[in-house]
């Protein structure tokens, strides 16, 4: 049931979203025309009309919307007004970089948080727990872009207090092409250290505390007590009994990471000047390159939907009570 309710609105969901986005873009283009209009525009009336026809502003909004939706279904996101290339090509060329950071963040976050959460739950109220809690909370309180800026001033800038250990910006060095394969890998990693820390800092605290709390809840549950009373040692009780159950909340939030990869990143990408998806979104907005903006919205909401589905699948894998199409015991 749960899965079904999520899947069914897929159709109207996209439609409503596009509608909202379309309204926004209609408005924006309207004003951008006003901007160029009185300001001694270089476009003649004829050209304006031509452009209006090209972007189908001459037809009524609803018709234009249906047309646009039809194009989306055929993966035709239109042409960028700035680059004069299909939007899809531009987005595709930026996607690997964002994907690299996204996947690396995902691996790092889960790789660090789950073990740390387990250790913290077992060693609850010890010195280790308290110290790591302080670190984790600091990370939780500060938004990732502030972390990024702080890191940049401390470790990348060579002026003032900076140490100048890491590059200021970019994904690779300018002489990337001339490097050996090993050198290339090292170069990417060298550039990735600071942004990755900033990425991980955001989701890190939440995940660790989620893991710790849910494991502690489970450790206090009767079935773990029974298992220990039965003669199992503590370690087996945790790893065979409690751990699997406490992974359920973690699995629920897994899919959200997919959209986080894209939408959460544009601040960090702007700060570190990484030529990824987020920076593209920001630049196209500044340049009023609306087809690209629309394309990004469409893709990120598709990813969000995909993420929801992925979460449901993850929950179904971890939680044996949830079956597809069966009753929604996880509601």
């Amino acid at each position: 049931m749960f899965v079904l309710t999520r899947l069914v609105p897929g159709g109207p969901l996209e439609r409503a979203l596009n509608e909202a986005a379309m309204a926004a873009s209609d408005g924006t283009i309207g004003t951008s025309f006003e901007h160029t209009g009185p300001g001694g525009s270089t476009l003649s009336e004829d050209q304006m009309e031509q452009m209006a026809e090209y972007y189908q502003f001459d037809k009524n909004p609803f018709y234009g919307y249906v047309l646009w939706l039809g194009n989306i279904c055929r993966f035709n996101l239109g042409y960028s007004t700035k680059y004069h290339k299909p939007v899809w090509d531009i987005i595709r060329s930026r996607l690997p970089i964002s994907l690299f950071y996204g996947v690396a963040t995902l691996i790092l976050t889960y790789g660090v948080c789950i073990p740390l959460g387990i250790v913290k739950a077992i060693k609850h109220r010890t010195v280790f727990d308290n110290i790591s809690s302080a670190v984790v909370f600091t990370g939780y309180a500060i938004p990732s872009y502030v972390v990024a800026i702080a890191l940049l001033t401390l470790f990348a800038s060579d002026a003032g207090l900076g140490l100048g250990w890491f590059p200021l910006s970019g994904f690779v060095s300018s002489d990337f092409g001339s490097l050996s394969p090993v050198g290339k890998v090292l170069d990417v990693l060298y550039h990735a250290v600071l942004p990755l820390i900033a990425y991980v800092a955001g989701s890190f605290a939440f995940m660790t505390m989620l893991m710790k709390n849910s494991l502690m809840d489970n450790l206090a549950a009767d079935y773990v007590r029974t298992a220990i009373a039965k003669g199992l040692n503590f370690r087996t009780a945790i790893f065979n009994h409690a751990l699997r159950n406490s992974l359920i909340p973690i699995a629920t939030s897994f899919g959200n990471n997919l959209s986080l990869i894209i939408t959460g990143s544009f601040l960090i990408e702007t700060i570190f000047n990484i030529d990824g998806f987020g920076l593209l979104g920001f630049e196209s907005l500044v340049d009023r390159d609306y087809p690209v903006v629309m394309g990004i919205i469409v893709i990120s909401s598709l990813l969000f939907l995909l993420g929801n589905i992925l979460s449901d699948i993850c929950v179904a894998i971890v939680d044996p009570r949830v079956k597809f199409g069966a009753d929604g015991s996880n509601q």
């Binding site: 999520r6 609105p9 109207p12 969901l13 409503a16 979203l17 909202a20 986005a21 926004a24 959209s259 894209i262 939408t263 544009f266 601040l267 979104g281 907005l285 990004i296 919205i297 990120s300 909401s301 969000f304 939907l305």
Partner: peptide, 12 residues
């Protein structure tokens, strides 16, 4: 609300 939530907040 589910539809509303899919909209990337800061970007919009």
């Amino acid at each position: 609300i589910e539809i509303w939530n899919t909209i990337p907040f800061l970007y919009v």
